[in-house]
């Protein structure tokens, strides 16, 4: 029964199915040696004295425009964030467009403007690109691929192997806003306040944390699969576990409302502009204080701690119970990034 003959939507969901596909088909072919080993967010490439970070991401979100952003912003932020959390300053981007015949020119123009604005705000340059048009029905309006190169910040060496019992887990803000904003837009759910995607760049958060580089152990932007996928992945095959305190996890009330209606666990939902960071407990206060001085880090706080309960992510629930946090399995939300 476990023999899958065709690609399923769930293979792209960021959960267990995605991991299985990458492990069995990609890693075996390309990831046995070199920079792909361990599947970091970005490849670290040594050229003489300089280390560069290289990463790529594709974007197929529907709808193309949503409250708080659009596919263009997402395409800039997604790749910039992968480069940033690899401990680098993002410098250059490539931009490849796959456009469906019939896409309104005005939509394309708006999205390109949005890409320009996002790139300028971050200080990355679009330096190469490609444009393809396919016949009606062969893609859904517009797909975008970006790749990014950044320069490694000296001394900021993060990795799962540096995480130790007693370290603390910090989030830069509310979790799950992006996925719920897309879902609400798609299902026409009306709320008291419009729920906005959190799409944004984390490069300044990384730069801020780099001041305490020694104690920073791990950084990641929780996209598909949410924090459950990120944390599940880092405790897997590790000698430690993580305990989360539900009452300290920040959620936007409107995101919670949508999640309640749809019966979705917000820990499984994507963000596109948030960051999870694990660090030594003595520097956590300083990082949080600095982050809170930035608009993108205003909601920063500690949400958990590294324990010796190996391989398990445990949630201490609001009412004092404890339960396991599982990696999402397959498809949760179709095409959110």
């Amino acid at each position: 029964m476990n023999d899958i003959k065709r690609i399923l939507l769930g293979h792209g969901g960021g959960g267990k199915l995605s991991r299985d596909l990458i492990d069995s088909e990609i890693v075996t072919r390309f990831g046995t040696d070199g920079p792909l080993v361990g599947l970091p967010d970005g490849a670290r490439l040594q050229i003489g004295e300089e280390t560069l970070v290289f990463s790529t991401d594709s974007f197929v979100v529907s709808p193309l425009e949503f409250p708080g952003g659009d596919i263009g912003k997402l395409a800039v932020h997604g790749t910039v964030n992968d480069v940033s959390v690899s401990g680098a300053v993002p410098m250059w981007l490539s931009l490849a467009l796959i456009i469906e015949e019939g896409l309104e020119m005005s939509v394309l123009q708006r999205i390109l403007d949005s890409i320009k604005e996002a790139a300028e705000e971050i200080g990355v340059q679009v330096v190469t690109g490609d444009t393809k048009v396919v016949a009606h029905g062969q893609c859904d309006r517009l797909f975008i691929n970006t790749a990014g190169i950044g320069r490694k910040i000296p001394g900021l060496n993060t990795g799962v192997d540096r995480i130790k019992q007693g370290d603390v887990l910090i989030t830069s803000g509310t979790l799950g806003d992006h996925g719920m904003a897309i879902m609400a837009a798609r299902e026409n759910l009306t709320l008291n306040n419009e729920l906005h995607s959190d799409t944004g760049s984390v490069h300044r958060l990384v730069a801020a944390a780099a001041r305490w580089a020694d104690g920073v152990k791990f950084m990641r932007d929780p996209t598909r699969g949410g924090i459950a996928a990120v944390l599940g992945e880092i405790v897997e095959n590790s000698s430690f576990g993580i305990v989360l305190k539900e009452e300290t996890i920040p959620y936007n009330p409107d995101a919670r409302a949508v999640a309640e209606v749809l019966g979705i666990d917000l820990m499984h939902v994507a963000c596109e502009g948030r960051m999870l960071l694990i660090c030594a407990p003595d520097i956590a206060g300083s990082i949080i204080e600095t982050w809170r001085g930035l608009p993108e880090g205003a909601g920063a706080g500690i949400i958990g701690e590294v324990t010796d309960d190996r391989g398990r992510v445990i949630l201490e629930t609001l009412i004092g119970g404890r339960r396991m946090v599982d990696i999402p399995q397959g498809e949760l939300l179709p095409r959110i990034c």
Binding site: D265, L315, I319, G320, G321, R323
Partner: peptide, 9 residues
Amino acid sequence: IARYGIRQI
């Protein structure tokens, strides 16, 4: 019951 860990308390 599972989501809030009620069995455990």
